[in-house]
Design a protein around this nucleic acid. Sequence first.
DNA 1: CGACAGTTTGATAGGATTCAATCCTTGTGG
DNA 2: CCACAAGGATTGAATCCTATCAAACTGTCG
Lengths: 233, 233
Amino acid sequence: MKIDRAVVKALPLFDRMSDEDLDKLLGHASPRRVPQGDTVFEQGQPAVSFYLLLHGRLKVTQVTADGQQIIVRVVHPGDLFGFAKALQRSDYPGTAIAAAESLTLGWPTDLWPSFVEHNPRLAVSAMQTIGQRLEEAHTRIREMSTQEVERRVAHAVLRLAKKAGRKEDGGIRIDFPISRQDIAEMTGTTLHTVSRILSAWESLGLVEGGRQKLIVKNPAGLSELAEGSKDQA
Amino acid sequence: MKIDRAVVKALPLFDRMSDEDLDKLLGHASPRRVPQGDTVFEQGQPAVSFYLLLHGRLKVTQVTADGQQIIVRVVHPGDLFGFAKALQRSDYPGTAIAAAESLTLGWPTDLWPSFVEHNPRLAVSAMQTIGQRLEEAHTRIREMSTQEVERRVAHAVLRLAKKAGRKEDGGIRIDFPISRQDIAEMTGTTLHTVSRILSAWESLGLVEGGRQKLIVKNPAGLSELAEGSKDQA
DNA sequence: CGACAGTTTGATAGGATTCAATCCTTGTGG
DNA sequence: CCACAAGGATTGAATCCTATCAAACTGTCG
């Protein structure tokens, strides 16, 4: 399969890299088409590769010892994922599963250290990426510590709309199949509660739901909910 | 104030650095004694320096828009902290306050990029550090999503015992002043609930409480609680 | 047109927060 | 050295949000 160099070059992570270096990088990369529902790697497997998502959408999940599942994060096009080696561990901490048909680019994990040492710029960029992810994690911790479920769901939906939203007639549609269960696993609640909340929102005209479908009709209204306007009164 | 080079050199983050480079590094560092209750930096301030904790104990807190406070993490001796620049932001995301009298080493933030570019090894180490922190954050998210309060508190206490425990007559003492409120802010609950839980544990002989004091008498018993033995039955 | 996966909705129970009051402990000042 | 202030901790009672249990519904796919 032919890899479009321009696509990769457009990503912030690689934009400072010379064409020469980039070609060398792409020379080692293996593209892979991932059908919906298939996994790129699974929790506990040895980390043999790290990846870049070119197209589609992935969910990274973790299963706890007692069988409960959570969604750690959603991978959007342009995101690097599965670089366990950078986290100083030899196996993947989670499972990456395609929420929609996806296209990934994979490199052998062994190449990571040499990449980083040969391209300090890349090292800095990668570190910033992880840093941002850390901040997102802290945001989530903060939300889960201090906010009730409805606000957390509001935040999660707004984030999805921003990261994976596509404008549509009178609303922003989440551009990949997403279930109530998924949202529940992102916010630390149950699908029942999510369903109730979305139903309530739908009757308020804030969103429009459906089977694995979600359209935000009134982002401003949702934001108000998310920010907890009740304190302002 | 004289800085003990050997102390710094012993840290994993710097152990691969040459004496020469290390001296250059320390030449730019400013040591600072931080009395209990004082802050090293505060949330929202411009990130002028990044730090290393040599001695003592710090709590990194965040305050939400509506005034609620959470403890993001506890900084232990040997930990790097406050490197907001690496997270691609110009201000500190949280406040670092001394839980006990502490000693820090600070460098101007501007030096960070040059450090990293001149010492790829350091870049890798730093990235691993952030990576570990990310994992910790995910662990916390997972716990908050799936576990009831008592198990979360058990985990938090065990972590504290491991990171800041000091053996004592028939128990492991958390070696810095810590209140129920602190534990509540670490686990996303209220001090009341924490107090009730600790009281219950004390009557079971698992811990011994007191004013800003906590001694783990039976780590194994606590672990059992933390792992959720109820599912095993 | 079944069958299944996803969704909705009702009823119930329970864990945790909130509100409130009291009790300790520690440090300070007279 | 003792008393008092002040922050910290404990405990009770009531409430409420959310999970759980349970059942029915519906859109979609083969």
